[in-house]
Design a protein around this nucleic acid. Sequence first.
DNA 1: TCTGGGGTCCTAGGACCC
DNA 2: TCTGGGGTCCTAGGACCC
Length: 435
Amino acid sequence: MGSCDLRNTQGLINMGKYIALIDCNNFYASCERVFSPSLKNKPVVVLSNNDGCVIARSAEAKMAGIKMGEPLFKCKDIIKKESVKVFSSNYTLYADMSNRVMSIIKNHFQDVEVYSIDEAFVSIEAVSVENLHEELISLRSKILKWTGIPVSIGVSTTKTLAKLAGRKAKKNLGVHCLCDSKDFTNALREVKVGSVWGVGRRLEKKFFLKGVYDAYQLSVLDHKRARSLGSVNIVRTILELNGVRCLSIDSIPDNKRQITTSRAFGSLVYTLDVLQEAVSAYISRAAEKLRIQGSSCSTITVALSTNRFSQKESYSFFVKTESLISSTDSTSKLVSVGKRILESIFKKGPGYKKAHIFLSGLESSASKQYSLEDDVASIAKDTNLMRVLDRLNVSYGRDTLKYASTGMSRDWLMKRERKSPSYTTNWSEILTIQL
DNA sequence: TCTGGGGTCCTAGGACCC
DNA sequence: TCTGGGGTCCTAGGACCC
């Protein structure tokens, strides 16, 4: 963490170093639009897994009154009335489009932190705000021209302020600099405290009770009072609102400390053998993620849950964790432990909606601790097998080679009834143009 | 009928140690 | 009535993010 002396907003202008947040507009909806130009200016939404909730909306869909996170069945009427185009999520496509956008940004700037699939923070040394503004406007057009994805860019001196600037940029669909102390107070007053990055619903409620309603009021809140309402993070947020950098730009992502694969089934599952297929498949996926970052895990947790929205049955969650004697990244080893755990938590009766796998106790595979009981030769063999498996699946597509235990029927697979083709990652689904 | 998934960090409290 | 003090490590749960 950088220095945390308290600076006032006057000091901002002379800090010399800026942080920009580059954020793709309505990202998933925009991706769908790139490949279906007829959707231009039309309302578009993208759904979560299992076609459950709306997780991305084009501007027109927002205008039509569809809310973020709303279950599909609750906005069926609007969708019909406004002829909203609905897509299942197509993560392969979005990840690929994201990579394209991010690589343009990385070519342009040195210090880039890819913060999420649709956002990046960059740290910039600029001569003047005016020059920077120009530069970012041209970057924005380049991204739009090269990928078809519109972005908005917020600039300020800390991440938290860049986020606020990004909100403004979204409204006028371009670049917004929040670097001048004159605009500062007004800009902060316009933002509800709950919209500040780092203030969620719980904290917002607490702040309301204390008469803190907007970002400006938060920025002048006494640190001790703030600390009594939240954790040390909220004090950092206040400092950041005052232009004091507490959060740095991390251009090299850390390895994950925990790996999760949890997914709802397409329909309720009642039998152990179908659950075993699903759990094996989820573990395979989690183990792949583990190997991608070169880690092994020493703890595996398996959980089953019923439908939490069901009126008829009460919600149940069964969970069990097992520690391994020495850590592993082998799919087969993890699957066999996972299946054993599943058998021990499975109860006949309820319909299961979801299975969850958590891998934790992660350490680098290269420097892992062996146990006296380890059969080193068979571990080496397994490692080679995993290498071949991963390589084939990278070259020829996921699940080209998979464990039989993950099932052939895959009755539990999630619903994705309105998925667009994987235009950019699958030869057989490439875009075709008819003349 | 239908309600996402994958992460992080922080804190309090218990277990344990000398 | 009286019940050491100081420390570490681990875990569960809460809050937040996209």
